[in-house]
Design a protein around this nucleic acid. Structure first.
Length: 542
RNA sequence: GGCCCGGUAGUUCAACAGGAAAGAACAGACGCCUCCUAAGCAUCAGAUCUGGGUUCGAGUCCCGGCCGGGUCACCA
C-alpha cells in the first residue's frame, strides 16, 4: 500500500512541479483514527521548494491525484497533511491474502539467504542461571527467532571459559565441601562459592568415589565434575525457557588451536602492539581511546580482550554474514576494542553488531536486591519459573525496551497471576478457539466466505491491524527490540476483545457468521505466529 | 572527571528512527455477566527533569545544567 501511494504521489508531483527536486516521500500511519489510514507530509516539506502555503500545495496534489482504486478518500487536514482512507474492497482483498498465507503470514524476505550468528547467555559454568541472566537469554533467543522470520539462517552460540581463576576457585570450593562432608574441618577458600549447589556436587562425588579423593584435594576432578553438572543444569534451565543452542564455544580452544598467538602475530606485524613493563599493549589510543590497553599481562596471561578479538575473528571466518552479541551494560566498554581489533585485522566491522541491554534491577520486598553468584545471594531462573512459569518469565524480560532498566519485582511477578499482561494476549487466542469450537457445532459453511459483509467499524479496524503484522516483525528484528512486537500484539488483542464485545457469531445469519469466522481465523493466526516468535505458548483454553 | 544508557501519570513502561490531540498496565473512582470464557469491555481522574537552540512542527535532534544506573584495571 505504501509503495502504491508513493508511486502515485511521485507521478502526480512530477506533473505538478516539473522543475522542483522532489524530496523523498514517506507514508505514515496517523495516530488518530479520524486522520485516516495513511498520511503524507509531503506538502509541508514542499512549502519552501514550491513557494506556496502548504495547504494550497496539498489541495493541488489532492486534485491531481487519480481517483478510485485502493483509495476511497483523500483529505487535507491541519497545516497541510494529506490523509488517505483505504477502500473497504482493498481491506477485504488483504484479508483474503492473509488467510491464504496461513501459518506463513508475517514472514519476510529481508534477510533471505543470510547466515547470522547470535551469541548469548555465555555465562561461565560457576553456578545456576539467575534472574540476572534471564534478560540476556530471552532477548538473544527472541532476536534469533525474529531474524529467522525475516529469512535469515540463524545459529545460536554459547561462549564460555572453563580455564580462568573463577573456575579454579569453583573446583577448590567443591573440594572443601567434599572434605567437610567426610568429616574434615576444612574451610572454604578465600572468595569461595557459598551456594548450596556446591555441596550437592560434593555429595555426588562422595556417593561415587567415597573418600578416595581425600588424599588429593587439588584433583582436577573437582572442577571438572562441577563444570559438567552445572552445565547440565544450565542446559535444562535453557530448555525450560525453550532455548536450544546450536553450539557451545570454549574459549580454551582459541589457545589450543593457536588463534590467540595468530592474532598477536598479525597485530605485531602491523605494529599495533608493543611490549612495556613485561606486558603486551594494544595501541587503542590510535582509535580514540585515552589509554592503550593491555592484551597480555606481565604474568603471561592474556586479558579477556585478546580472546574476545580472536573469538570474533573465528566467528567471521566461519562465514557468517553477521555476528550479533548480546551484552549487559557492564560489557559495553570492551566492545570498541573488539571492533577495532577485527577492523585492523581486515574484517568489515559492519559484520559484527551488538545489542546492549540495561541491567535488571531485582526488587524484593520493595527493596533493590544485590545479587552475587559467589555469595549465593540470587534467585535462580528455575526458581522463578517454578513460581510463574516459562511464559510469564519470557514475557517479562521481553516487554520492555532493551535500552531501559528493567525493574523486576519478584513479589509482583509471583503474585501477578491473573493480572499478568501475558494472559491478555493468551486469553485473546483462547477465546477465539473457544468460539470456533462452539460455532462448528451449529454451523456448516460451504464455498467462499463473502468478506465484504464485514462492515462494522471494529471489524475493519481488526483487518487493518492484521495488515501491519509483517512490518512489525521486521521492525522488531531490525531494531533488535522485541517489545515492539508485544506492543503490536497488544493492540491486536485489544481490538479483538472489542470485537468480541460488539459483534457476535453464534445466532447471526450464516453468511455473516462465516465472514466473521474467517476474520477470527486470521486473528488467531496472527496471535499464534506472534506468540511463537516470542516463545510463548498459545493455549486453546484457559 | 571522560565516555555510554536512561529521566514521560502516584508506580512500571509505550510513543513504530521529527509530525496532528503523548498511549497502556497497575494503583484510585464509577458502570457492564438471563448474552460465543468478566483472565474481558466501557467511563472518569492523572505526565514529557530544567534552561537555551534548530524546525512549518520537538518527548524525539543540538548545546548547557540537574538526577539515577553503567563503565573507564596487568578482574572476568
Amino acid at each position: 500500500m505504501n509503495d502504491y501511494l508513493v508511486k502515485i504521489l511521485t507521478e502526480t508531483l512530477k506533473k505538478l512541479y516539473p522543475d522542483v527536486q522532489i524530496p523523498e516521500i514517506t507514508i505514515e500511519k496517523p495516530r488518530i483514527v479520524e486522520h485516516g489510514d495513511a498520511a503524507t507530509t509531503i506538502a509541508l516539506q514542499l512549502t519552501k521548494l514550491v513557494g506556496k502555503p502548504p495547504r494550497n500545495i496539498a489541495q493541488e496534489i489532492k486534485e491531481a491525484l487519480p481517483s478510485g482504486g485502493w483509495i476511497q478518500e483523500v483529505e487535507i487536514a491541519g497545516p497541510g497533511f494529506i490523509n488517505f482512507r483505504f477502500a473497504d474492497s482493498f481491506l477485504f482483498d488483504k484479508l483474503a491474502e492473509i488467510l491464504n498465507a496461513g501459518s506463513e503470514y508475517g514472514k519476510g524476505t529481508q534477510l533471505d539467504g543470510k547466515k547470522y550468528l547470535v551469541e548469548f547467555v555465555s555465562a561461565n559454568p560457576t553456578g545456576p542461571l539467575t534472574v540476572g541472566h534471564g534478560r540476556n537469554a530471552v532477548l538473544g533467543d527472541t532476536i534469533a527467532r525474529l531474524y529467522e522470520w525475516i529469512g535469515a539462517d540463524v545459529d545460536r552460540e554459547y561462549y564460555f571459559n572453563n580455564a580462568g581463576r573463577q573456575m579454579r576457585v569453583l573446583g577448590a570450593s567443591v573440594s572443601a565441601r567434599y572434605q567437610q562432608i567426610l568429616g574434615k574441618n576444612t574451610e572454604l577458600p578465600e572468595g569461595g562459592y557459598e551456594g548450596e549447589y556446591i555441596r550437592d556436587i560434593a555429595q555426588k562425588l562422595v556417593d561415587g568415589k567415597g573418600d578416595s579423593l581425600l588424599s588429593d584435594p587439588d584433583n582436577i576432578i573437582f572442577k571438572e565434575t562441577a563444570e559438567k553438572l552445572i552445565f547440565d543444569d544450565i542446559s535444562r534451565t535453557l530448555e525450560r525457557m525453550k532455548i536450544v543452542m546450536d553450539s557451545f564455544f570454549n574459549e580454551n580452544d582459541l589457545y589450543e588451536n593457536g588463534s590467540i598467538q595468530d592474532v598477536l602475530k598479525r597485530l605485531r606485524e602491523k605494529d599495533l602492539i608493543y611490549d612495556e613493563d613485561g606486558a603486551v599493549w594494544f595501541r587503542t589510543t590510535l582509535f580514540g581511546k585515552e589509554k592503550d590497553t593491555v592484551l597480555v599481562k606481565s604474568t603471561g596471561e592474556p586479558t579477556y580482550r585478546l580472546p574476545d578479538i580472536a573469538y570474533h575473528c573465528n566467528k567471521l571466518d566461519r562465514g557468517y554474514d553477521k555476528c550479533i552479541d548480546i551484552f549487559g551494560a557492564d560489557h559495553i566498554a570492551t566492545y570498541p576494542d573488539v571492533v577495532s581489533g577485527i577492523e585492523v585485522l581486515g574484517y568489515d566491522k559492519e559484520r559484527v553488531d551488538v545489542l546492549v541491554y540495561q541491567f535488571v534491577t531485582i526488587v524484593m520486598d520493595g527493596k533493590p536486591f544485590k545479587m552475587s553468584t559467589r555469595k549465593a545471594n540470587f534467585v535462580t531462573l528455575d526458581e522463578l519459573m517454578d513460581e510463574v512459569g516459562a511464559d510469564v518469565t519470557r514475557f517479562f524480560f521481553l516487554m520492555r525496551s532493551p535500552g531501559t532498566h528493567l525493574e523486576f519485582d519478584i513479589a509482583q511477578a509471583k503474585e501477578s497471576g491473573e493480572k499478568n499482561p501475558v494472559y491478555y494476549l493468551q486469553y485473546a487466542y483462547a477465546r477465539i478457539q473457544s468460539i470456533m469450537r462452539k460455532v462448528f457445532e451449529s454451523y456448516k459453511f460451504e464455498g467462499e466466505a463473502n468478506l465484504s459483509l464485514l462492515t462494522h467499524e471494529v471489524e475493519l479496524k481488526v483487518i487493518k491491524d492484521l495488515m501491519e503484522f509483517p512490518e512489525w516483525i521486521a521492525s522488531a528484528a531490525m531494531s533488535k527490540e522485541p517489545h515492539r512486537l508485544i506492543n503490536y500484539l497488544n493492540e491486536v488483542a485489544t481490538d479483538f476483545h472489542k470485537f468480541y464485545h460488539d459483534c457476535r457469531i453464534l445466532g447471526e445469519d450464516p453468511a455473516l457468521a462465516y465472514a466473521r469466522v474467517r476474520l477470527l481465523a486470521a486473528v488467531s493466526m496472527v496471535m499464534a505466529n506472534g506468540l511463537s516468535i516470542l516463545g510463548i505458548t498459545a493455549p486453546d483454553r484457559m
